[in-house]
Design a binder for these strands. Structure first.
Lengths: 154, 154
DNA sequence: CCAATTCCCAGTAGTTTACTATGATTTACA
DNA sequence: TGTAAATCATAGTAAACTACTGGGAATTGG
């Protein structure tokens, strides 16, 4: 039940992108520097986010990434779905397209998975990038007057 | 963000145990037969559930497992925590004991993880084994009149 | 005693994760 | 027009993890 680094790093990258939205295309390098992530790995994540239609890229010198839509219309759920795949905690909690298990009719655990899935999606869909960006900006301000000692990456 | 088979199989085993609560100790073999799971693997899961204080075991002939408490006082959250470990989607969403990341003060994503964790725990803690067992019993009744073709295990 | 059990620990094939490496392609700007 | 700065695409890989399997000891009811 753990999120992978794709989701964790990717969400950080998207918040970074939202915070620097006004400054023109944001390069992978600048995100990697600020967030202390591997450039090469970020490249892959941004690729996924692009394919999911959440960011657009401009190539060549002075190029970089931008949000594809207003940050108010991108949710944490959108981002994590793009990076982690379906947010359902099990494959059978979803829709009818899936192969049915023998005991589909008498499967109680499915009820649990469905409720869990709903809870996860509802909370994640309810958090917008806009909200996160503005929170991040106000946290940064506070953080600047007391330089905190470095330690570990999350 | 997927649950492993530990959580999925283990929850099924616990529901099975709750359904057959009145029949004395339930052996691994009988659970494995009904749920179509590997005996050897189940053995491990029951071991974890025992160590977590959710079931008790009696050894020897006629032995088996029972619920350690009333099924109304065991939640899906209890079971999944025992089998999957902490239900938090990331390691940093929890408490103060953890190592702080560099940007702990300005870490917005932590806010997301904390809300997600709360949603997961709240829903899972809110589902009791008693509820699941009674649901399972009524589903079984319905299932018996229309024998459904087997297909795949979840 | 014996058969049915739980208990314990070790091994292992396969998959996934979290990167790294290499190199091609595109583009602004001097 | 040349070059540096970017994205884009694909492949490789060490380490960790998953989902088991196997062997055998310990316990207990009949």
């Amino acid at each position: 039940m753990k999120l992978s680094t794709k989701g964790r790093y990717g969400l950080r990258a998207m918040v970074d992108l939202a915070v620097h939205e006004t400054e023109g295309p944001v390069s992978i390098q600048s995100i990697a520097d600020r967030q202390e992530l591997s450039e090469k790995y970020l490249e892959q994540l941004l690729g996924m986010l692009k394919r999911a239609g959440l960011v657009t890229a401009s190539r060549g010198s002075q190029g970089g990434y931008r949000l594809a839509k207003d940050s108010g219309h991108i949710s944490a759920g959108d981002i994590l779905r793009a990076l982690e795949g379906d947010l359902s905690p099990v494959d059978c909690a979803g829709f009818s397209a899936e192969p049915h298990c023998k005991s589909a009719g008498s499967c109680v655990t499915k009820y649990v998975w469905r409720r869990l899935k709903e809870a996860v999606e509802d909370t994640l869909n309810g958090i917008s990038l806009k909200e996160l960006a503005s929170k991040s900006r106000s946290l940064e301000e506070k953080g600047e007057q007391n330089a905190s000692p470095a330690n570990k990456i999350t």
